Amino acid sequence: MSDLLTTARDGDVVVLTLRRPDRRNALNLELCQALHAAAADAVQSGARVIVVTGEGTAFCAGADLDGVYGDAFISALYEMLHGLTLVPVPVIAAVNGPAIGAGTQLAIACDLRVVDERARFAVPTARNGMAVDAWTIRTLAQLAGTGRARRVMLAADTIGHDEALSCGLADRAGTLDDAIAWAQEIARLAPLTLAHNKLVLNGSTQDDERIAQSFADVWASEDVKEAATARAEKREPIFRGH
Rank of each mutant, 00 (worst) to 15 (best):
S204N: 11
A76V: 06
T158M: 05
T125A: 11
A102R: 02
F73T: 03
E185F: 02
P88D: 05
M153R: 05
E55L: 11
A134Y: 10
V224D: 00
A195T: 12
E55S: 13
W182L: 15
G56W: 05
E30Q: 14
W135M: 04
I180Q: 02
G147I: 05
P124V: 01
A63H: 01
G147Q: 12
P98N: 08
D157A: 15
T104C: 10
L5V: 14
F239Q: 02
G11D: 00
A122R: 09
G46D: 04
V14Q: 03
R19W: 00
R20Y: 02
V115K: 08
S204M: 07
A47K: 01
V95E: 04
R148F: 10
C32G: 02
D133R: 13
G168H: 10
L31E: 12
D3L: 11
I92V: 15
A155H: 12
A232V: 08
A109W: 07
A99S: 08
V115P: 00
T146H: 09
A40V: 14
S221D: 07
L65Y: 07
L154W: 00
T146L: 08
E30V: 11
I108G: 06
E233P: 00
L201S: 13
S166Q: 14
V49Q: 03
D223L: 06
A170R: 09
F73Y: 15
G129S: 08
A119N: 10
V15T: 15
V114W: 05
S75Q: 13
V15F: 03
Y69A: 13
T139D: 10
C32Y: 08
S204Q: 09
L106H: 05
D116R: 01
G101L: 08
C110D: 09
G11K: 01
S166F: 02
A232I: 09
D162Q: 13
L176V: 15
A149L: 03
D66F: 09
F239D: 00
D22T: 12
G11Y: 00
T205Q: 10
N202L: 08
C60E: 09
I211M: 12
G70N: 11
A61W: 07
T158N: 03
A34L: 06
Q213N: 07
K225Y: 07
E209N: 10
T193W: 09
L31C: 04
A61I: 11
G145K: 02
A156P: 01
F239H: 07
A47D: 00
Q33F: 03
R138Q: 14
C32L: 05
L18F: 11
R151I: 02
L84V: 06
C32I: 04
R148E: 13
A144H: 03
R240P: 03
D208I: 15
G56E: 08
A183K: 02
